[in-house]
Design a protein around this nucleic acid. Structure first.
Lengths: 213, 213
DNA sequence: CGTATTGGATAGTTATACTCTCTAATATTG
DNA sequence: CAATATTAGAGAGTATAACTATCCAATACG
């Protein structure tokens, strides 16, 4: 496949593909001469994944590169691969340090040790949880522990169903690529359903009618 | 409260507050002279909400303005307010039109009519759902209907618990502000828990160990 | 053989979210 | 009351992300 065919097959402009190549998001094709390179179906898959994460998942390209670098790192064993790749999805912006942050950290600590999940304490996802809880606290909203642990149960069940969608027999790289896509896109799915559920409940409480603009 | 005090109380630089004022995200303070304006605690609350949505929820300022404009629109009755405000959270980017999109639209249609939720068919959240499902389909991943409807149940239960946190006796504007904050921040909470749950399940399948970088 | 395409690099563009500077008027403080 | 600091409001400047366009020499293809 030449670059123009890759472009046509994916719907991504040639200029953008070249940009992704430059940025190391997409591996170079195999150059057959000074003006030709051949791209494989793996390139097409990779390109579609990049677009899915960027356009639908709102993941910045820099983090997508982190994810893909992890996937391409042959050194990482299969058991760490998914975790390492997932870790790249979250920003590493440090949380603001104040009372709310301290309390949120404690709440998260208690929740996770109560659940007994096997997660690394330095996981960026934990940082995200702490930041969300601290921010809620600063807005004067305290989430009761039982609501939080119910949320955790729901999230765990969702994750179980997600990972069941994976074909364990597929090649390692493909499994991880699919796992990443599933994680990000099912989060979008949840968010969409969550907002529609809010709308339904709000309709039940306050009456119906289509919100306009 | 003068602007410098508002800045100190919120941790947001004066220049940024002025920018928000210019952009219509924050209402002007009451001007008492040519060089003085007074800001109330409502301004502080509003400012904190803006930062929470922007920094933690990754909501672009343009959409935050849409949300706040809805909240400030006295015309809108309480029953439509939350929905209208929530609608502004989602982008209105039109979905790509192809077979995957058609199928995703049908799947969403079936799911929602089966659930019987009172949601407007033009809801942007439905667009988000369709885009996520279509993108999954393009990546060769088909979500079984029973997984989808289970996700919907989980999302609905989460939404119920969210809205129980609201104090129905509070003033109308505050209720909506809090509802928005809860929606966005609990989505972040779910995402964080979902990723940690994935890590837990992955550890169970592939063995443990802390993913490094 | 000549026109079109390609790889690779460099420069330019658009959008977002600030951040800085300026001015005249006013507030505060010694 | 004079010197210093602060403010509202507007405009311009900056940083970053994510493209998009242009160029050139070297092929590819009809």
């Amino acid at each position: 496949m030449r670059i123009s065919e890759l472009s046509r097959a994916s719907g991504v402009p040639v200029a953008t593909i070249k940009y992704y190549l430059r940025e190391g998001l997409l591996p170079r094709g195999e150059t057959t001469s000074a003006t030709q390179a051949v791209y494989s179906s793996a390139h097409l898959r990779r390109l579609r994944l990049i677009r899915a994460l960027a356009e639908v998942g709102d993941v910045p390209l820099a983090r997508i590169r982190g994810v893909l670098d992890a996937v391409d790192d042959e050194q990482i064993g299969p058991h760490l691969l998914l975790g390492t790749a997932l870790y790249q999805l979250d920003s590493d912006a440090p949380a603001e340090e104040d009372d709310s942050a301290d309390q949120a950290r404690q709440t998260a600590e208690r929740l996770l040790s109560g659940l007994g999940w096997r997660t690394y304490s330095g996981s960026p996802a934990r940082g995200r949880l702490v930041r969300a809880l601290a921010t809620l606290d600063r807005l004067g909203l305290t989430i009761p522990p039982e609501v939080l642990s119910r949320y955790a149960e729901l999230a765990h069940e969702a994750a179980e169903r997600d990972l069941e969608l994976l074909d364990a027999a597929a090649p390692r790289e493909e499994i991880v690529e699919r796992a990443i896509a599933i994680t990000v896109l099912m989060e979008q799915t949840f968010t969409a359903l969550h907002r529609m559920a809010q709308e339904d409940i709000s309709a039940g409480r306050f009456g119906t009618g289509a919100p306009g603009c």
